[in-house]
Amino acid sequence: MELTRYIQLESNFFNIAITMYVISMALYFLFFVGKNEKHGKYATFFIKIAFIFHTVALITRGAAAGRVPLTNQYEFATSFAWGIALCFMVFEYKYNFRAMGAFVSPIVFLIIGYAAMQSKDIRPLMPALQSNWLVFHVATAVIGYGGFGVACGVSFMYLFKNKFKEDAFFKKHMPSLEKLDLISYRAIALGFLFLTLCIATGAIWAEQAWGRYWAWDPKETWSFITWVIYSIYLHARIMKEWSGRKAALFSIIGFICVLFTYIGVNTLLPSIHSYA
């Protein structure tokens, strides 16, 4: 098949995925605000459909480019959204916690919306990007950022829990503060492990490509800042004075750093990582 046909096909799958995500997000809102159980079930169903189309779109792109679709701003943005959706579905299932969708699906939408605004061109890779380490580096970032995205949504719930009126629906669907704290902790633990792997594989790759494994380049520095913020979160949780709301705040600041590392550094700061 020709490249343009592939790209067209990918574009179609991608658009269907976005549409499904939007529907799912709306249903999660209706579920959470309208307190309608049925909408919640549909929301979970639609996000799965969206995820399937999203996955197929990514595979199509990979087939078209003849490589893992993780090498430019568009490909990473769409994979990033994919990672959050995946982590969300796993956590929703594992903790039987549907209300989370009202907080996490907007994050998925934000990122995939950003992806939709990027150029979808498939260009050949410059030599520095032709490395297997790139694949590990970006794949671990996708999972790590996915965990952080979920944690961000849950931490928002933690901070706003007391603002909602307690009624039967909330008793059933809104976990206790301890449980919210535990869920965001589990999500951040996953994210932290993968962010560490991402930084480690990035360092190995940087040594091979540029002769140094760490040089305080803006992208490297911002990933370091992100890593430090999340390690502060991990310790804040176990310190008496900083646990609870303060820890939740660090989780949200951490995700802002994640977004800045990914989008801000490329667009606002000079960096050798600004290939895309």
Binding site: I232, H235, A236, M239, E241, L269
Partner: peptide, 21 residues
């Protein structure tokens, strides 16, 4: 102490922003 370590980490991360701008 852990608190001192965390405050130090916070200062390190904030000041390292300077080098990126």
């Amino acid at each position: 102490s852990m608190k001192f370590g965390m405050i130090l980490l916070l200062i390190i991360s904030i000041s390292s922003i300077a080098g990126t701008v």
